[in-house]
């Protein structure tokens, strides 16, 4: 009897978040009309594509046990920068590369400050985020950028392969690459080791400074790529275009930490977290729930999931 109960508890901590996802899905399927049809389901996936991509970058920071508060600002900045390049007639490929470099440099700079100078990442990225916002307004003077964009650029955010939107394909590639990177590559293992115990990792001869810089750079690169895709999707760029990603990204990545009892940032979990956010947003909108109810529900779910994680951690401590 006792043994069975223990197993049930273990199952719950391992699959609890996935089960919650399934329950939410079933709930909306039964009670909300129009939720389960192929078009809506593809719609949900498309809606979470950008969120997933930016959150995968942020997950790299969580893995090394640092924070990035600048990603939304960096995404907004790179969104307007790439728009500016495109409108000036620059080759889209070149525009994307240069924009990625600019975006990535924010994380790289923050990484240097965190690793070499020792400023906490929370403060560093808060500051670099504010600087990014400053650049946005210096560049746009506060107005959105509209104009003609070549089809080759717009295809990134608007195109599709058969019935599958290109954004969904890009998202899938990013998830797979991130997953392989973290779990099957040496750099990924060293990122995990750094986040797990920086001192021990350093004493094992690994240059932890380097991996902190890599993680923050990847976070900014993810943000920059998201900014580019956002501009491509909208065909325009807004100075605050990506600010809405802030909370949902935290939510997705934190929910992701609870998936499969990992207790730490992981790319697959982040996707599940983003999916949960997407389903909640979509289902509640279809059900006609007021916007504020969505926020309240999302907040409650984050608290719940993080509570589960910390209780798990406490139980393990007690062992």
């Amino acid at each position: 009897m006792i043994d069975k109960k223990f197993n049930f508890q273990q199952l719950m901590t391992k699959f609890g978040t996935l089960l919650a996802l399934a329950l939410i899905f079933i709930f909306f399927s039964v009670f909300v009309q129009g939720f389960v049809n192929p078009r809506n389901l593809i719609n949900i996936i498309r809606q979470i594509a950008l969120l997933t991509i930016i959150a995968e970058g942020f997950t790299m920071c969580l893995i090394v046990d640092e924070l990035d508060l600048s990603f939304a600002n960096v995404a907004s900045l790179t969104g307007v920068i790439v728009a500016g390049f495109i409108f000036s007639g620059m080759n889209p490929f070149l525009a994307i590369i240069i924009t990625l470099l600019i975006g990535g440099s924010f994380g790289f700079g923050a990484g240097l400050l965190v690793a070499k100078v020792g400023i906490p990442s929370l403060i560093t990225t808060l500051a670099t985020g504010i600087i990014a916002t400053g650049f946005i307004y210096a560049y746009t003077k506060g107005v959105s950028l509209y104009g003609e964009m070549p089809e080759s650029f717009l295809a990134l955010g608007r195109g599709s392969v058969g019935p599958i939107p290109s954004l969904v394909i890009i998202m899938a590639i990013i998830i797979i690459v991130a997953h392989l990177f973290v779990n099957n590559m040496k750099i990924g293992k060293y990122l995990q080791a750094t986040g797990s115990n920086k001192i021990a990792t350093k004493l094992a001869g690994i240059n932890t400074d380097k991996y902190i810089i890599i993680a923050l750079t990847l976070s900014s690169l993810g943000a920059a790529f998201t900014g580019i895709l956002l501009t491509s999707k909208l065909g325009a760029a807004n100075p605050e275009g990506a600010s809405g990603f802030m909370m949902d990204t935290f939510a997705a990545a934190l929910l992701g930490m609870t998936v499969l009892n990992k207790g730490r940032g992981n790319p697959f979990g982040t996707f599940i977290g983003a999916l949960m956010i997407g389903i909640l947003n979509n289902g509640m909108t279809l059900a006609g729930a007021p916007y504020y109810m969505q926020d309240i529900t999302k907040g409650a779910i984050i608290i719940l999931s993080v509570t589960i994680t910390s209780l798990q951690a406490k139980r393990l401590e007690a062992k």
């Binding site: 040496k186 293992k189 080791a193 797990s196 115990n197 021990a200 990792t201 004493l203 094992a204 690994i206």
Partner: peptide, 23 residues
């Protein structure tokens, strides 16, 4: 505090130093 990554697996800990040569 200094020797182990306690939340990670035995496999991950044992291979940490040598990982470069197993890649």
């Amino acid at each position: 505090e200094e020797g182990l990554l306690v939340q990670m697996t035995v496999k991950e800990n044992l291979s940490l130093v040598h990982l470069g040569k197993l890649t």
